[in-house]
Simulated scan of single mutants.
Amino acid sequence: MNIKPGNELITKPHYPILDGLRGIAAIIVVTFHLTEPLGTGHLDILVNHGYLAVDLFFLLSGFVMGYAYDDRWNKMSVGSFFKRRIVRLQPMVILGMTLGAIGFYFTDSAIWPLIHTVPLWKMLLVLLIGYTILPIPLSLDIRGWQEMHPMNSVGWSLFFEYIANILYAVWIRKFSKTALSILVVIAAIALAHLAITNGDVSGGWTLNVEQVRIGFTRTMYPFFAGLLLSRVAKPAKIKNAFLWCSVLIALILYMPRIGGAQHLWMNGLYESICIIIAFPLIVYIGASGVLQTKSEYKICKFLGDLSYPLYLVHYPLVYFYVAWISNHNGITIIKAWPYALVILIGSVALAYATLKWYDEPVRKWLRKKFA
């Protein structure tokens, strides 16, 4: 049993450390996207493994999903489950896509030549599809990056998150621990094969056969490994878990590329170990952690509350930053870091503002309406 600040007892423990870790990973995602345009490819990005935060998000989601819903199905329908998930996820999806659309015509860069030829009706059509989080076909690619969500690139992971939610609610929630373990082992083998043969797991954001395969492979193992972990783990009491887990996440995501262009398999092996072994271990330690002060709780709560809005609102700002980089050839990290810092701070401020003035009020209203 957990005790929150103020000593209010709750019958089902919450995992504030896991919320805090989600926030840490979200901030690192922003730093990854800010250093990505300064590299020439996967081999030399400064925050080289920042994209693995998405795989950690999937694992955290699976763990929380099992913990929150596994014991509710005797009094909850599939329909009510989907209502809960839509209320939780869709308000920020809609806002994130809207912000991306507002900025679409205000970015001026040679890397997006299509922007200046896109009629308003086509942009609005892509926006409306984006509101549903369904992917667009390549024929509607209005930015030229072959993204399934040109208004807000990170929408691809929400698309696969929804698919995992659907699979869980309709089918996989009924699996025994043995059946779920078999599924997780098969998914782990598929993930390791993808990572080692490709050199990394990066991908999943384009609506074609290869990228959709990557997206499914990246989703299936971590999400359902998280679900399995929620069913079999028996958390202990670990002190300073938030600190140690945060350090581990930072070390993993900031690790430089391994093996170079000559030995791609080495990096793939590293990422396989991180996703298959290290991330579940981090989640277990986080779930076992004990917060000893109110300050620790407040930090974890702030980071957890901020994580999802930050993930959805930062990329519309990153588009402006990427355009600026592309319009100034030869920009180095030395010259770019003040602008990157402004985008990072601005993203955090925008995320907090949208959390308090939009996301929380809208979700509260929707809960009352659906109730």
Rank of each mutant, 00 (worst) to 15 (best):
I3H: 15
P5E: 00
G6T: 10
N7W: 05
I10E: 14
I10V: 15
T11I: 07
P13W: 03
I17W: 01
G20R: 01
G20T: 01
L21D: 01
G23T: 02
G23F: 00
I28V: 09
T31V: 05
F32A: 03
P37M: 00
L38P: 13
G41K: 05
H42D: 02
V47S: 07
V47E: 03
H49D: 14
L56N: 02
S61T: 05
S61P: 13
G62K: 08
G62Y: 13
V64P: 11
V64N: 09
Y69H: 07
G79L: 07
S80Q: 11
R85Q: 04
R85F: 02
I86R: 03
I86F: 15
P91W: 07
V93D: 11
L99C: 13
G100W: 06
G100Q: 05
F104I: 06
T107S: 13
A110G: 08
P113I: 00
I115E: 02
P119R: 05
P119T: 04
K122L: 15
M123H: 10
S139M: 03
R143S: 06
G144D: 08
W145Q: 03
W145E: 11
Q146S: 10
Q146K: 11
E147N: 11
M151S: 12
V154Y: 06
E161I: 00
Y162I: 09
I166V: 14
L167H: 03
Y168F: 15
A169D: 05
S176M: 04
S181R: 13
I186P: 15
L191P: 06
H193K: 12
A195N: 14
T197R: 05
N198F: 02
G199E: 06
D200W: 06
W205N: 09
W205Q: 03
V212H: 07
R213K: 14
G215H: 10
P222W: 03
F224A: 06
A225F: 03
A225C: 08
G226Y: 04
R231L: 03
V232A: 04
V232Y: 05
K234S: 13
K234F: 07
A236V: 02
L243W: 14
L248I: 14
A250C: 11
Y254K: 00
A261M: 07
Q262G: 13
H263C: 00
G268H: 07
S272A: 12
I273L: 15
I275A: 02
I277E: 02
F279C: 06
P280Y: 00
V283F: 01
G289S: 04
V290C: 02
T293K: 10
K294G: 14
Y297V: 04
K298W: 12
C300H: 04
K301V: 02
K301H: 11
L303P: 15
L310D: 01
H314G: 01
Y321W: 08
I333F: 15
A340F: 03
L341S: 08
V348F: 08
A349D: 06
A351W: 04
Y352D: 12
W357K: 13
D359F: 05
E360T: 10
V362T: 14
L366Y: 12
K368N: 14
K369A: 12
K369M: 06
A371E: 14
